[in-house]
Design a protein around this nucleic acid. Structure first.
Length: 676
RNA sequence: GCUGGCAUAGCUCAGCGGUAGAGCGCCACCUUGGUAAGGUGGAGGUCCUGGGUUCAAUCCCCAGUGCCAGCUCCA
């Protein structure tokens, strides 16, 4: 007998070999109808899975997130089947997993396949869904699976089967629906009719096995839901997300631009974007002063020897702008060497090469090393908004979030080994403070460690172990939930990264705190300890924003362009009712500017409705409507960008409220109360 | 870097083998209007760049550049 324990704690006895479906039916017709798959002892299985002996079983239905995943995976199979029908047996299907908002499947397709074909593919899929083809499963030895899939003319599957075999699998599973056969772990929906609403989203390239040296496949993305309304909701969400895209808002709100003539990935900050950035920088600067940092400035280039010494050059040669060769300036004409001194000078110039700096740490290290240090001086915290240049592959560039020139809100802390944990803790707290101040909720904290198997990581493994242990200890002490990523460390040390998503769901690393025992070693940094002897300091690299460009990009999306008052490039728009009120409007502007507020006036011949509309679209926090009534009483009529008419108030009162709102960085959905 | 798509007015986009359009924006005039679009007129284009096919190319072909999506990479 199969003894089935259900989620409500009850136990059901069934004949051995009874299927999950039979179990569901025995519980209720409704459940059987809604059943998609089942969770048996923690494992997802098909409805035809046979039960024997004691089990804990939970029927997975359409309402269960697992059910959605199973159905989407089945949709991927239907996609493959449809492509096979349309393009023949040469179509190679490789892998087709479920992803966060849908699924994809990678194919080798006839050349010329493009997104234009998707409607045709969708139509074929719909036919297969309408046919309500049942899924079936067969467990076979690897050799048999190989034979079956070769019979289907599939060559990529061999490689997958080989791996499964190597991993010790004695049997592998093959699923069929209608005339389509695929190697698959399962489970699947009972029949294709369970796929109620689906859409193919896009076509893109992808490498077989994610290896850029191997076959380039065609990846078809799709999504599916149990309900047409759910699908529509999702598609609407995507539309809304596009409107928040910082590249779109950056243009609409005149925040930044990129000119191909200047260069790809090089950001031109327009006045409004620059003001936003200036406010962020001011905010950080104040924080740094409070926390005992010292500001420094360093140049945008550095001798290549500096980076050879630091180790950056060999590691990151690929993604640097090519070195500037001085030799090109000292050819035969320019050289005109006449004496031995000139010759040696020219020889030196000939070999000199400069890099646009890919990072600031080597420069800061030179500042630290410029004067002898005592343990009494430590920790030394050197901060700079340092602009760095990295030659990213063209395909990587993306608005403000992936660029070739960017400014880090960088700092390097030099401390004694005893100070490491405290300094590390306080920098983590600084990053958290920054994120909190900007109302970021959804931040992934990632502890990035080295991969001992990789040659990428420099320095003494013992120091790595120490550094990694220190980071983990601090994270545990401050109870900061985090993920761990092996192999993601910087070449010189482990780090804690703060990662957020953009509106399209892509993850970006913003803040970072990195522990480094390697660079102090390479540059032979030292300080004199209480014992009068030389000791080696430890470095912490940290950037709460990460880069001003990327952070600003994410911030634009975060606020959908409606920045809190303290950040808004224009804080108030003064709108005159008619040109008769223009002189008072100008006076209001001047008064507000004198009070330190950022104001724009609209004195045009437009009607007030049009002026309000324009300022609202520009997401200006406050609109001050001024007509003859206001002019007489030195008043302003306040309207928020959210569309709330807050009525008239004395000009001075408005200023006072703004100053208060700015000072406490309150989120500016125009929260000035009408009374008080 | 790879695969695919796209590139037309300041912006968003339509269009066609016979040298080009809309809406918004801009400018001017009229209007002086009280909380999300007043009216009229006007200016504005190397149809991304370079080759090729053609009597003729913005359109078709090739190459390049840039952008978009994904992959790969990522300090």
């Amino acid at each position: 007998m199969a003894s089935i324990k259900l989620p409500d704690g009850s136990v059901k006895e069934m004949a051995d070999g009874s299927s999950v479906m039979q179990l569901a039916e025995s519980i209720g017709r409704g459940l059987a109808k809604a059943a998609i798959a089942a969770n048996v002892d923690g494992k997802l299985v098909d409805l035809f899975y046979p039960l024997a002996g004691p089990h804990e079983v939970r029927i997975v239905t359409e309402r269960d997130p697992d059910g959605l995943q199973v159905m989407r995976h089945s949709a991927a199979h239907v996609l493959a089947q449809a492509l096979r029908h349309l393009y023949g047996r040469d179509v190679q299907y490789t892998i087709g997993p479920v992803i966060e908002n849908g699924f994809f499947y990678d194919f080798e397709l006839p050349p010329g396949f493009s997104a234009d074909e998707l409607p045709k593919v969708e139509a074929e899929m719909q036919k297969l869904i309408d046919a309500n083809l049942a899924f079936s499963r067969q467990d076979v030895p690897p050799e048999e699976a190989r034979r079956i899939l070769r019979g289907e003319n599939q060559r990529f599957k061999d490689e997958i089967i080989d791996e499964l075999e190597k991993a010790g699998e004695k049997t592998v599973s093959v699923y069929r629906e209608g005339d389509f056969t695929d190697l698959c772990r399962g489970p699947h929906v009972p029949a294709t009719g369970k796929i109620k609403a689906f859409k193919l989203m896009s076509v893109a390239g992808a490498y077989w096995r994610g290896d850029s040296n191997r076959e380039q496949l065609t990846r078809v993305y799709g999504t599916a839901f149990f309900d047409k309304k759910e699908l529509e909701k999702y598609l609407n969400l995507l539309e809304e997300a596009k409107k928040r895209d910082h590249r779109v808002l950056g243009k609409q709100l005149s925040l930044f631009t990129i000119s191909p003539l200047v260069g790809s990935g090089l950001i031109l900050w327009m006045p409004k974007g620059a003001m936003l950035r200036y406010q962020l920088e001011t905010f950080i600067r104040q924080e740094l002063t409070r926390r005992g940092y010292q500001q420094v400035y360093t140049p945008h280039v550095g001798n290549i020897e500096l980076y050879k010494r630091s180790g950056h050059y060999p590691y990151y040669k690929e993604s640097q702008y090519p070195p500037i060769h001085m030799a090109e300036r000292t050819g035969p004409v320019a050289g005109a060497a006449t004496g031995p001194a000139d010759l040696s000078r020219q020889a030196a110039l000939d070999t000199e090469e400069y890099l646009l700096k890919p990072m600031n740490c080597p420069h800061h290290i030179q500042i630290f090393a410029a004067e002898p240090k005592s343990y009494r001086d430590l920790p030394v915290r050197l901060a700079e908004f340092g602009t760095v240049y990295r030659y990213e592959d063209s395909g990587e560039l993306n608005g403000l979030t992936r660029v070739r020139g960017f400014t880090q809100d960088d700092a390097h802390l030099f401390c004694t080994p005893q100070q490491v944990e405290e300094e590390f803790r306080s920098t983590i707290e600084l990053v958290q403070f920054v994120f909190r101040s900007l109302q970021f909720q959804d931040v992934e904290v990632r502890l990035s460690l080295r991969d001992p198997a990789s040659a990428k990581f420099a320095g003494d493994p013992k120091l790595w172990d120490l550094a990694e242990a220190q980071l983990a200890k601090v994270l545990t002490e401050i109870k900061l939930p985090h993920t761990v990523a092996k192999g993601e460390a910087a070449f010189y040390g482990p780090k804690v990264d703060f990662i957020v998503r953009d509106v399209l769901g892509r993850k970006w690393q913003l803040g970072t705190v990195q522990l480094d025992y390697v660079l102090p070693e390479r540059f032979e940094l030292e300080y004199v300890g209480p014992d009068g002897k030389k000791h080696r300091p430890v470095m912490i690299h940290r950037a709460p924003f990460g880069s001003m460009e990327r952070f600003t990009g994410i911030l634009i999306e975060h606020f959908a362009g409606a920045f809190p008052l303290w950040l808004a490039p224009v804080q108030a728009a003064v709108l005159s009712i008619s040109e008769k009120s223009n002189s008072y409007a100008a006076e209001v502007v001047q008064t507000l500017q004198q009070a330190g507020l950022r104001v724009e006036a609209n004195l045009s011949a437009d009607k007030i409705g049009a002026k309000i509309r324009e300022a609202t679209l520009q997401k200006v926090p406050y609109m001050l409507i001024v007509g003859e009534k206001e002019a007489q009483g030195r008043l302003v009529a306040v309207r928020t960008r959210a569309g709330v008419d807050q009525g008239q108030m004395p000009l001075e009162q408005f200023i006072g409220r703004c100053q208060k709102e700015i000072a406490d960085h309150g989120l500016g959905e125009a929260k000035i109360p009408v009374s008080a």
